[in-house]
């Protein structure tokens, strides 16, 4: 039942053949496959880590840009407000100046008109006085003598009535 015979040698031989066959046809490709997979996994992990770092950097950059944009927008709004304030002041100042100028012009006009009216009135009074005088006296003096006479009269009138102030 447990007799040792030539089978022992044959079995050693058989097994060595099996080892040789498997080593050649199965073990080598399998090892290669395992090694390939290992390198693939390592490279995949490395790539993933690199990409993750890149994404983080990108995110940080975007956040910084967003922050910068926000600050800039704030600055622009601030600037616009200041500009508007300045414009308002300027417009108000201009309006005030214009108003003053117009007032002055109007006053000048009024003064001028009054002077003119006084002069005209003066002429009118001379003529009327002459006409009246002519009628009263009944004779006509020559025009220059008339004017002189009336003017003198008016001068005196003025002195008497208003106290020497010119009209």
């Amino acid at each position: 039942m447990i007799d040792i015979n030539g089978t022992l040698l044959a079995q050693i031989f058989n097994f060595l053949i099996l080892v040789a066959i498997l080593a050649k046809f199965a073990y080598k490709p399998l090892m290669k496959g395992l090694a390939d997979r290992q390198t693939q996994i390592i490279s995949n992990i490395e790539t993933a880590e690199r990409e993750k770092a890149e994404a983080a950097a990108l995110k940080r950059e975007y956040q910084q840009q967003l922050m910068a944009a926000r600050t800039e927008a704030q600055a622009i709004v601030e600037k616009a407000r200041k500009l508007a304030e300045e414009s308002k002041e300027e417009i108000l100042a201009e309006a005030r100046t214009e108003h003053a100028r117009l007032l002055k012009a109007a006053q000048a006009e009024i003064a001028r008109e009054r002077d003119l009216a006084v002069a005209e009135l003066k002429g009118e009074v001379v003529t009327l006085s002459l006409a009246a005088a002519t009628k009263i006296i009944g004779r006509n003096l020559d025009a220059s003598a008339n004017s002189k006479l009336v003017n003198e009269f008016i001068e005196k009138l003025d002195e008497k009535k208003i106290g020497g102030l010119p009209c």
Binding site: I2, D3, I4, N5, T7, L8, L9, A10, Q11, I12, F15, L16
Partner: peptide, 12 residues
Amino acid sequence: NDLNTTLGLALL
């Protein structure tokens, strides 16, 4: 189940 096999491998 043959001692020849197991002993052969063990000796190897």
